[in-house]
Design a protein around this nucleic acid. Structure first.
Lengths: 147, 147
DNA sequence: GCTCAAATAAAAATCGTTTCTATTTAATCA
DNA sequence: TGATTAAATAGAAACGATTTTTATTTGAGC
């Protein structure tokens, strides 16, 4: 429901603007990740005046607030996708069709343990992303690389 | 030994040029990761004529050949470091001093299993990076963020 | 409705990275 | 050791995704 999103934004002390809601809505409706420019193109169908910097700014703020998530892509450009799962988890990304699925498995416990024991260090954050081919793209026998 | 590096480069069908060896040498001597520009500054002390594109090109090629490795930094700029460990592993990166240490732990088995069982997909690659504070920076009670 | 900080538009700038072209050099082999 | 050739390089230029800037608009609280 949209009121959920609005409520969540208020919790983050972010104003509930039509453009913010639209960006989230666009990402929600998409099964895969999108670039800022791709989101902008979709936004232009909904708003007569909409600047690319607005898209960038909102994407960053929403990602900071964990409403949306960033994809780590080999081309190092920004990509985002919506994920309603609010408990800590990681993602399986299809390199062919851009679909993103949740991975429940997380190794943080073992990692912290190894860093503490062997290195006497402290873990602050970790990045885990699994790339591959989703069920559908496997069927289609996709050969290419990242999109 | 340097002859090891030269031999390795030959295996990769890469010419053993003085600049290539110097880039590797610079990274070897550094305990933490470096940006292309930082490497370039060090190169300029060793070579009268050395272009930044040469540094970029070599860093990419060496990373493709797994002579050096890339760091995934939140600012999305390129960073590289040397790591002689040739068996599959991951890295613990100190966000304060940039030190990089090997992590032996790897979850690839469990990840593949979950992706196959729950998603009927296939894992092609995975990215695991652990960020935190190394032993020394913990002692110094470092408060800041990524460098 | 009024106030004000937050959000936005539009244009411009930034700057890390890549491309292009001519020149040089490492590797191969006679 | 010299000739050959593909790979590597210098330097300048381009590129383009992202960010900054400034004036204007708008959502939220009263």
């Amino acid at each position: 429901m949209d009121s959920d999103v609005a409520e969540y934004l208020r919790q983050l002390r972010m104003k509930v603007t039509p453009k913010r809601l639209a960006i989230i809505d666009i990402l929600k409706k998409e099964s895969g990740y999108l670039s800022p420019e791709e989101i902008w193109r979709r936004m232009k169908k909904r708003f007569a005046r909409i600047g690319l910097p607005t898209v960038y700014r909102n994407l960053e703020e929403l990602a900071n607030g964990k409403v949306i998530y960033r994809i780590t892509h080999p081309n190092r450009q920004l990509y985002y996708f919506y994920c309603g799962n609010s408990v800590h988890h990681h993602h399986f990304v299809c390199v062919a069709c851009r679909a993103v699925n949740d991975i429940e498995y997380c190794a943080i416990g073992d990692l912290q343990e190894e860093v503490r024991r062997k290195l006497s260090g402290r873990v602050v954050s970790h990045l885990l992303q699994v790339n591959g081919l989703c069920r559908n793209c496997l069927k289609k026998n996709y050969k290419g690389t990242w999109r």
